[in-house]
């Protein structure tokens, strides 16, 4: 697992208070990990802070799974 994926997972575990084993790439924040809409706003902010990236609102709306977050951040970092 990439360093980014590892860090994303840690942030999700910490913010949503879920078991690490449940944070699979396919896991949806809302459907599988018990987040509500405000939790996802906070998660995106935590990603921005941790990775020093800007995630605009329209992009944030499309980040619904763990993999979405990892892919978006990796793309930003590669650019």
């Amino acid at each position: 697992m990439s360093e980014i994926a590892d860090k994303v997972k840690k942030i999700v575990v910490e913010h949503l208070g879920v078991e690490e084993s449940k944070v699979t790439p396919e896991a949806s924040f809302i459907d599988d990990l018990g987040a509500d809409s405000l939790d996802t706003v906070e998660l995106v902010m935590a990603f921005e802070e941790a990775f020093n990236v800007e995630i605009p609102e329209d992009a944030a709306e499309k980040i619904t799974t763990v993999k979405d977050a990892i892919d978006y951040i990796e793309a930003q970092k590669a650019a």
Binding site: L38, E42, M45
Partner: peptide
């Protein structure tokens, strides 16, 4: 300001 928690108001 953009880092303000969405839970600040509630």
């Amino acid at each position: 300001a953009k880092r303000l928690s969405p839970f600040f108001i509630p």
